[in-house]
Design a protein around this nucleic acid. Structure first.
Lengths: 196, 196
DNA sequence: AAATGATGTTAATCTAGTTTAACTTTTACT
DNA sequence: AGTAAAAGTTAAACTAGATTAACATCATTT
């Protein structure tokens, strides 16, 4: 299993230095799991049991509104996280679904394990603080963009910021992430081609 | 100074238990400061030096876009935080301004002090992790509302969630926070009165 | 009390983005 | 290869919300 979660260890080492012993403790408590395209990792209404680190593949987190419309909140690819954090930290039913868009390899941190780990390896508290700080900043910037940019500019920003993601994901999901209809995104793309 | 920052100590005690000694260390490193209505706590372009805990009063965090339009990202009242976290954690120029809407009392955590505190009182790492987890969850829920609710429903949600804030803040700022014009908010309120 | 500036309202016109619906292209399955 | 399903396009009619502009109210200062 060691080599499979190596990307996670590399990722952690960017934030904190762990001893070999700590790494061993960590590895002994984590779950490595493969999912197929289309498979659900977590479901709206269930308590979110895991924080998930993506080793490979791609996931979307979304919810269905009263009319059954799907709204995508985030995508996650290699070296990023996914989970309904609200449900995870309060251990109450989730607002969101997490589903694989590609075959995906994950490392799962269960709620109980992560609490144990905070005690056994106090540095992980710092690690997760920093990760969440970054996620919070990104989230707030997204709010700002959603209010101050037009749909076209939000799309251009997305394309520029996540060129790798755009290739891998159907357009209608990108539209959902941007908060517009797939028809309007199609129109925007057509317009951009005309403008060259 | 002790009694002035008591609300902060009470707030912290909801998340972690600090010894009297730790409390004394903490207090010795914090800055208590009063601001007048209209005064700026932080400015777009400057590096954000402090994380601020609000003892009393009210602040807004906002940015001015290219056309000079003001967009309000968040309000903060008693027992909440304010700062451009992105600027604070990276110590790079801020995207946002923070300004007092009322006379305001703050407790300031400077960047250097907070790093020292994480080392001297490791429990604070946990405390801030939990605070930021909550802030991140709230931020993500706001994204969801901005995409899935109409302006009217966002206003109703705001009014319901923050009844105390609504009383204290001019309507045009609430419109800015909701991502709509003051004229349209006025129309929504008129409509709500007719519907009763 | 008058005057200034900040805040809030109303209404007409305009536009970014939605809805509906028909059609085309691509992908995946037998 | 042939077919069905999924994904993407186009265009017309519509709507939520913006813009502009004129006016009303309220608070603060002189």
């Amino acid at each position: 299993m060691e080599h499979k979660i190596q990307p996670l260890l590399n990722y952690i080492s960017k934030y904190i230095v762990l001893s070999k012993k700590d790494e061993a403790v960590l590895m002994s408590k984590l779950i490595y799991r493969k999912y197929l395209k289309g498979q659900y990792i977590a479901q709206q209404g269930d308590v979110c049991k895991y924080e998930c680190f993506v080793i490979s593949g791609c996931t979307k987190m979304f919810f269905a509104d009263e009319e059954g419309q799907e709204h995508i909140v985030m995508f996650s690819i290699e070296d990023w996280w996914t989970a309904d954090m609200g449900s995870f930290i309060t251990q109450t039913p989730a607002d969101y679904n997490v589903q694989c868009i590609e075959n995906t390899e994950l490392v799962l941190f269960s709620y109980d394990v992560i609490e144990e780990l905070y005690t056994e390896i106090p540095q992980l508290e710092r690690f997760f603080r920093k990760i969440i700080e970054k996620a919070f900043v990104a989230s707030q910037k997204r709010i700002v963009r959603s209010f101050s940019l037009s749909a076209k500019d939000r799309y251009l920003y997305f394309r520029n910021q996540y060129p790798k993601i755009e290739q891998r994901i159907p357009q209608y999901m990108i539209a959902s992430y941007l908060g517009i209809t797939k028809e309007f995104l199609s129109k925007i793309k057509g317009q951009l081609i005309i403008d060259q």
